[in-house]
């Protein structure tokens, strides 16, 4: 078996094990939270009598391990189950949200990844110049400000003052791609500002690290131009660390954007997860968290595979 394939299978199996552990941890965490679904839904209007009726209806009167095992049994057979509260199939509940989340993450990634790598290369090329410093100051400022604040600033500038973009996403069902891009531009821009610095800094740092190595010196001595030196000689060797950082940021764009979703009233997974945790809607929380965990695992796996393919020495750690 090819070593990459073997690695892939091994890591995938480990990933599945991780998912199982994650599901257990989430289940236990929800059990530890004060109050259950019945109490959260009924709130102030709970009486012992209607609480009991509610619990009977949802099977919450069963012991914890029975509930977990019956959920796991269904999950393993591909049945995600229904939301405890609304009774809707989780598949329907999540699919549109998931699409929205991936759309926004993809949109932000399409802008931010090329932008960050380009800025990183430019900063490395012209390091210690005014240009390098400006890029650093600008991106670091963007990442240092809390993301909701970045969002509000963009809303103030582009929605209130200039009136160029809508302040809330408010997507309609039959929106065209163009309309979607228009309505999600501000959240995507916010996310871009948040993730760019990290990727840009890593690109710049790895390139500069490489520039001190003998083979770069060799290329320099044979007369390669600065640009050729970086793009042809250094960049391919810097792929491993850059890809790792990109993968982490892409995963963040998918799982960590709940605050941006709130500011722009964007119906993504984050909002769904927060709602479901607040109501202790265990089945929804479980599925959403597993999707998030799977996202991390897959992105990490992909970045490792790319890193190792680009530099097989990484396979043999000393």
């Amino acid at each position: 078996m090819h070593y990459l394939l073997r690695l892939f299978v091994q890591r995938l199996a480990l990933g599945l094990l991780t998912l199982f552990v994650v599901s257990l941890v989430i289940f236990l965490s929800i059990e530890l939270l004060p109050g259950d679904v019945a109490q959260q839904v009924l709130g102030q209007s709970a009486t012992p009598e209607n609480l009991a009726a509610f619990r009977r209806e949802l099977g919450l009167d069963q012991p914890a391990h029975t509930r977990y095992l019956s959920w796991l049994g269904g999950f393993l057979q591909g049945d995600l189950g229904n939301s405890l509260i609304s009774g809707l199939p989780i598949k329907d509940l999540i699919s549109e949200r998931m699409y929205n989340t991936f759309f926004l993450a993809g949109f932000a990634a399409v802008i931010s990844v090329p932008l960050a790598v380009l800025l990183g290369v430019i900063a490395a090329l012209y390091r210690e110049t005014f240009l390098d410093k400006s890029i650093n100051v600008a991106t670091l400022t963007a990442i240092s400000v809390p993301e909701f604040f970045v969002g509000y600033i963009l809303v103030w500038l582009f929605a209130v003052e200039l009136g160029m973009f809508p302040s809330i996403a408010n997507l309609s069902e039959d929106a065209s791609l163009g309309d979607r891009i228009y309505r999600t531009f501000l959240p995507a821009l916010t996310l871009t500002l948040i993730v760019t610095a990290h990727m840009m800094r890593m690109t710049r740092a790895s390139l500069i690290n490489l520039l001190a190595l003998p083979f770069i010196e060799m290329a320099q001595l044979k007369g390669a131009s600065q640009r050729r030196l970086i793009v042809i000689h250094a960049l391919p060797n810097a792929i491993a660390p850059i890809v790792t950082v990109i993968a982490i940021n892409l995963a963040y764009l998918i799982v960590g954007v709940v605050i941006v979703e709130v500011v722009f009233v964007y119906p993504g997974m984050g909002q769904l997860l927060v709602d479901s945790v607040a109501k202790r809607d265990f089945t929804v929380v479980q599925t959403a968290c597993l999707l998030f965990a799977a996202t991390y695992i897959l992105f990490n796996l992909a970045s490792d595979l790319i890193s190792i393919a680009s530099n097989p020495r990484l396979l043999h750690r000393k």
Binding site: A159, V160, G163, P166, S167, I168
Partner: peptide
């Protein structure tokens, strides 16, 4: 904040 801005901008 989002609701107020949306009202002001006519959303």
């Amino acid at each position: 904040g989002a609701a107020t801005t949306a009202l002001v901008t006519g959303e």
